[in-house]
């Protein structure tokens, strides 16, 4: 791998690192796990980078590798197991105008999303990132119709978790 390739990769990842942080946020529950997953996604992105031809946007390509790593490739390391700390999430929940009920609602929502399975989380993630059903289906390898049907089911499931 030459220096030029390393430089262009690191520069692009530095610019788009929030995408990776967002994946880590959905799939992990504490800072150690977040860092571990971030590290693994970075390695997987770098390994795949020589084949990245630039036909897709760097960010679009990152969604795919990021989710693949979180769902399939990542092996939770020992120190991240059994350290569920959903309540003490390091992220502050902020809304534009301070609203106690909305803040509470958001807290419960994030907790509920963490209870979804890996595939459901991927759907929610792509939805939150404003991806259309075509892109969601292409990323996951399902049909757009099935993506839409599943998304509706996830919404119902979230409602159930929130209002048991």
């Amino acid at each position: 791998m030459n220096k030029e390739l390393e430089h262009s990769f690191v520069e692009q990842l530095e610019k788009h690192q929030n995408i990776v942080h967002k994946v880590c946020r959905l799939y992990t529950n504490n800072q150690n796990a977040h860092n571990d997953l971030f590290q693994e996604i970075t390695i997987q992105l770098w390994k795949a980078y020589p084949k990245f031809r630039g036909e897709a946007k760097f960010s679009t390509w990152m969604y795919r590798v990021g989710l693949n790593t979180a769902i399939t490739l990542y092996r939770k390391s020992k120190r991240t197991i059994n350290t569920y700390e959903i309540d003490s999430l390091q992220y502050k929940i902020k809304s534009e105008e301070y609203d106690d009920t909305e803040e509470q609602q958001l807290k419960s929502l994030y907790k509920a999303v963490h209870k979804l399975n890996d595939i459901e989380k991927a759907l929610v993630f792509l939805y939150l990132e404003d991806k259309d059903y075509k892109e969601i289906s292409e990323t996951l390898g399902i049909t757009p119709v099935n993506a839409r049907v599943k998304m509706n089911r996830v919404k119902t499931k979230l409602k159930k978790i929130l209002n048991p």
Binding site: N18, K22, K94, S95, L106, L109, V113, D130
Partner: peptide
Amino acid sequence: ELELLKKDWKNQTSE
């Protein structure tokens, strides 16, 4: 619910 989450999700980049 998801729309509320989306709104917050997008405002969080600085976090």
